[in-house]
Amino acid sequence: MTGPTDELRAAPGGGRELPERWAPEERDTLPGVGWAWQAITGALVLVLLTLHMIANHFVVQGGLRDYQQVIAYITNPIILPLETLFLVVVSWHGLLGLRAVIFDFGLSARAERIVTRVFVVVWLATIVYGVTLLAILVTRP
């Protein structure tokens, strides 16, 4: 018995094979993983940013820390790892977001891989810069 859907499947363009541009072997990472990371890092950023904003701007006289206050703040053994983690996570979230915006232009799999690698380098450079800055301030006599 032939049903109407069979006729449609037999119609031009109704074949069942995976269209070429959706071939899984072109994939760099599992689809959706970037999106999940964005949600996870986003949640972390929300928590860490709230702490950062309250500690640096809302509980401080005048709304901003002067040099001595900054040093006192970041040399706190709880704050230092939290601010370092904030740097790592917020730069990841931000760069991953920009990467998603760029990917929305429908890049080729090869172009996507290049963009990803460039962004990993930028991310690592950001962390090196931030950690160096923190190290200078924390170790300054």
Binding site: D6, E7, R9, A10, G13, G15, R16, P19, R21
Partner: peptide
């Protein structure tokens, strides 16, 4: 039933 396994060729979506 229509033979769904018949070779239809790789589906080329209109570019």
């Amino acid at each position: 039933m229509t033979d769904r396994t018949a070779p239809t060729g790789r589906t080329a979506l209109p570019d």
